[in-house]
Design a protein around this nucleic acid. Structure first.
Lengths: 258, 258
DNA sequence: TATCATTTGTTCGTATGTATC
DNA sequence: CGATACATACGAACAAATGAT
């Protein structure tokens, strides 16, 4: 096998990594294998580099993991087009008269489903007051232009629902409406949001209709707080960064005198 | 092989997927294989489910892809602990007198290195004025408390450096200082940021000292614009969501009349 | 220190299934 | 239908890391 100059830095790399490295370098060069082009077939690579079929398959699997190639059953393995996200989800709030509306334009694909729930772990930490009962509303959002999907979950703790009965009556209302309801009940609202990313689970892949060559999802948690820093509402949104990108406006803030 | 009830929904799944499904379900149940526990060895699974070693290995690889397990050479395969991020990077700007400072507390681990560069693709699109020459400053940031790492890149287009000579003189200055320089030259600044995620490349894994069981990185692009919407500065930051989480403050904005 | 059993990692070879054209 | 291509599955051997003897 290739005992060539490229592995001078990593002399003890396994065969399949060496092969993956050679192919990755060739792809990066862009001459031999431009985006969209087909790589040599596995049998071709087998004889060209004098390695076994399984080694070739491991090398190609490595390329897929690196996000450089996609294999299609019966057709071949292709250099991945650099898929730039087709949509941008603006994670901003726009003031329009008395209303606060979302900065993006996502439609509700299905009716929201409401369940009663306990929360713990991640979400519990955001509410910062121990294990709690909640009203949870799940919905599927789509971008009508691009077909991009996102799942959205609204989590209302029961103690807040008790204080603001209008919330308990329509937990499946849109976030815009929920903000309105909270504001009308005399609360001054502030928002912050965290972003996380991880490998998608199979159910998430299905819900977001993720392409085969995408593997990660973005998860945001938006917390709506009152003037005392108490979390009133948490929203969770999941999207695939292969299709969308999140955008935030950064507004300088003046720390309150404490 | 197991023709048990669990594959009623997916009757024609390959063996390795069936096995991965069985193990994933057992992990999800949490009884037999709680987080941190060791899965049966490959030879054990081989005989228990009467499949070949390679099929077992494919199944375990599937579990790793799903983010459910981590294999350690010579020791075994373990159910992954749900690693909660240890640090939060606040992507906010705080006004302190005349200065704008970062909302987080990351130290510079090494001296920034400055290079002249061409940019194209992603970054080029953010500047929205075709291929350009830039001054690029790279630095490595660490959180002194947790040791969490991030890479940071400042990208200054030459046309902006020409107009604001102080920028060209100290391109490796901190973002805080760069904002100050731009503001002093009479520009009104606004900021926005996009978030992306993808599988980490080997060099990124090394730079961020990512643990073996982490696979994705978060990439942010912060654009500093003047009052006319012209991009003056782009910053790129990479972190591992296995260790950190990004936090944004959402400030409602009033759209300008126009 | 040295040896050994255990466990995952790498590599080979071969056969068959299934999608595409 | 046949040729080509990737996908699945089996079996075997050795390498390398780990932990205990």
């Amino acid at each position: 096998m290739p005992s060539d100059s490229t592995d001078a830095l990593q002399p003890h790399q396994p065969l399949y990594r060496q092969l993956a490295g050679i192919l990755a370098a060739a792809i990066a060069a862009g001459e031999e294998y431009p985006p969209g082009s087909r790589l040599p077939s596995e049998t071709e690579l087998e004889s060209r580099y004098n390695v076994s079929r399984s080694t070739v398959r491991q090398a190609v699997a490595e390329l897929r993991r690196m996000g450089l190639a996609v294999s299609k059953h019966g057709k071949g393995t292709f250099v991945r087009e650099q898929a730039t996200p087709v949509a941008t989800i603006k994670r901003t709030l726009i003031r329009r008269g008395k209303n606060l509306i979302m900065g993006h334009q996502l439609d509700e694909a299905e009716e929201a489903t409401v369940t009663r729930d306990h929360v713990s772990g991640d979400i519990e930490a955001l509410f910062a007051r121990g294990p709690i009962h909640t009203l949870t509303a799940d919905r599927l959002l789509t971008d009508p232009q691009t077909g991009v999907r996102a799942t959205h979950r609204t989590i209302i703790p029961f103690d807040v629902a008790d204080e603001v009965p209008a919330l308990a009556e329509q937990p499946a209302a849109s976030p815009t409406d929920l903000y309105g309801i909270l504001a009308e009940s005399g609360l001054t609202l502030t928002w912050w949001e965290t972003v996380d990313a991880r490998t998608a689970r199979p159910d998430e892949r299905a819900a977001l209709r993720m392409p085969d060559d995408a593997d990660t999802i973005l998860i945001t948690h938006r917390v709506t707080e009152d003037q005392n820093g108490r979390a009133l509402l948490v929203e969770e949104m999941r999207t695939s960064p292969a299709r969308v990108r999140l955008a935030y406006r950064i507004t300088p803030t003046t720390p309150k005198r404490g």
